[in-house]
Amino acid sequence: MKDGFPVTRTTRALNVERSLYYYHQKNKQVTEESFQGRPVPGFSLAQTGIKISDEQIEEFLMEAVEGEEGIYGYRKLTNYLKDQHKLVINPKKVYRLCEKLNILLPQRRKSKYPRRLAKQHTITASNQLWQVDIKYGSIEGSGRFVFLASAIDVYDRCIVGYYRGPECKATNITKMLQGALLRRGIHYESETSSKLIIRTDNGPQFVSEHFGRFCEHQHLYHERIPSKSPDLNAYIESFHSVIERECYQRYRFECFEEAYYRIDEYMDFYNNRRYHGSLKYLSPAKFYKLYSKGNCPQIINL
């Protein structure tokens, strides 16, 4: 038929019904149209009903990403257009326009390490569960902060390791934990023999590839508490409240060196000399020395 042969003669020669040809032609046309998709209108409506061209919307988006809204992904930019420019627009269209303008934020990579939610454990000895968290204090008059990352053994309450510095990255925390493992003589040959649980919140340091790789390499079981549930990290939260009251509020840190000195001084006092009511009024270090193997009738469920 493409070469000009009549439909009737061709279908008769092929011994097929003419209606069959028209049926296939109709389906072919529908299929081709369906692949074309709905035409792009080239505008969106404002809440007042006025048409706003895509070119104008693109200008709105470029103005946004050059300002404070440069941190937003396409979903928040959609909300921005609705809020600031009163547009009736959906995220799919904003995504398409952002892709055209090359202003899409890079997509976050999902970690290959599993996210394990904190669950209840029965703790009967030292080195079964460590809680890790980050606290910061201010350097007087400088607008800068000193960060403190601490790991506490929930059974004997010892601060098994800590890091203090002007920044706190995942590498700083894993190096601190590596030192704590060495001091306590903890080394697991395989994941099946692992007994130590590391519990953290969902801070960027703890969800990072580096931290996940460290726990996998050391055969540690890393679990994270759900958001807005600091009570599941109660022991390290309690310690940070204590150091705030007994150290940070007692001294003014004029410089980083003074902050480091006071923190080191307090850590030595806390671990070795400070009486702890829930440890038979022993210091954490003394309690660990006497009862680390669980020969104390103390069972913790958390």
Rank of each mutant, 00 (worst) to 15 (best):
L181K: 02
K195M: 13
N127Q: 09
Y266I: 05
E63H: 09
K92C: 04
K110N: 11
V16Y: 00
I236D: 03
S194T: 13
Y235T: 03
Q107C: 09
F5M: 14
S229D: 07
F287D: 05
H217N: 13
F287Y: 12
R199D: 05
F239T: 02
K228T: 04
L87P: 05
R224K: 06
F35G: 10
R224D: 03
P166T: 07
S238A: 14
C98E: 07
F206P: 05
R109D: 11
N79L: 13
T171L: 09
V154G: 01
L117H: 00
I186W: 00
R109Y: 06
Q29V: 12
D156K: 05
R184Y: 00
R18A: 10
E140N: 10
L232A: 05
S126H: 08
I236G: 02
V242C: 03
H217D: 08
Y221N: 13
F253T: 06
L20M: 07
G143N: 07
E140F: 07
Q178G: 11
Q36F: 02
F5T: 15
E32Y: 03
S19K: 08
E223R: 11
T200A: 06
K51Y: 00
K112L: 14
T174N: 08
K286R: 12
S238D: 15
E69S: 08
F147W: 11
I300E: 03
S111L: 13
T11P: 12
Y261Q: 13
Y235W: 09
D83K: 11
C98K: 14
Y221M: 15
L61F: 00
I299S: 11
F269H: 12
E99H: 07
R12S: 11
P226G: 03
Y21H: 10
H219Q: 14
D201A: 02
Q218A: 14
V132K: 02
K26Q: 15
N127M: 07
Q36H: 02
G143A: 08
S138H: 03
Q29K: 15
N127C: 06
R109P: 01
A180L: 07
R9F: 11
K169C: 14
Y21R: 10
F5D: 15
G203D: 05
S292I: 07
V7L: 10
K112V: 14
E265G: 11
Q84P: 06
S150Q: 10
S208E: 06
C255V: 04
L81V: 08
Y266W: 05
Q120V: 12
D83W: 03
M267H: 03
K289V: 15
A259G: 01
L302A: 06
E99W: 00
N79R: 08
N79M: 06
F269N: 14
Y248N: 02
N127H: 01
T48L: 14
G203W: 04
M62F: 01
K93S: 03
L302E: 01
T171V: 06
D153V: 03
A259T: 04
E189Q: 14
H219R: 14
Y21N: 10
F43L: 10
C215Y: 00
F214I: 13
F206W: 01
Q56C: 12
R224P: 04
K76S: 11
Y23N: 13
E167A: 09
R115F: 08
R9H: 12
I123L: 07
I198H: 03
L117C: 11
I186Q: 04
I243E: 00
V160I: 15
L77C: 02
P204H: 10
R108D: 08
P39T: 05
